[in-house]
């Protein structure tokens, strides 16, 4: 990648940072402030909040996180392969099919064992 392309990514990064920041800062600076007790409550889709926000979450979430990590790493392998796809032959397609099928087998196993069921 050339320096020019990195400048482009830097521009995206700057924009991505500015787009949420400017409305928040502008709202703080320009908006009128007349707080009352109801306005100061935590906003949760219009429902009154119940209990503490910091609760212990269910351990089952961790399975989904682990499965996500595995497929995230798979993506890392898919990405360069996809970039070179036009130059690659049928054999490369076969290799990637084997690669993905092995992971599909693991996913089906995980699914069948009930690890993805929410109880």
């Amino acid at each position: 990648m050339t320096v020019h392309e990195w400048l482009f990514i830097g521009l995206f990064f700057a924009l991505g940072w500015m787009l949420p920041t400017i409305p928040i800062v502008a709202g703080k600076l320009l908006g009128p402030k007349r707080p009352n007790k109801i306005k100061q409550q935590t906003y949760e889709c219009g429902i009154e909040t119940v209990g503490n926000t910091w609760v212990q979450f269910r351990a089952q979430y961790y399975v989904f996180a682990l499965v996500f990590v595995v497929f995230d790493v798979e993506l890392i392998f898919l990405f360069p392969w996809a970039m070179a796809y036009n130059k690659l032959g049928l054999f490369a397609l076969f290799e990637m099919t084997v690669f993905i099928l092995l992971l599909v087998v693991a996913l089906v196993y995980t699914w069948r064992k009930g690890a993805l069921e929410w109880e």
Binding site: V70, I100, L102, A106, K113, G114, A115
Partner: peptide
Amino acid sequence: PFEVASVLLMAALIGAALMVSPAI
């Protein structure tokens, strides 16, 4: 190594399912 990586990921997924799932 590319295909072995797939086997490794498969083992990781199955291991995760075995270790965490209460159904197992």
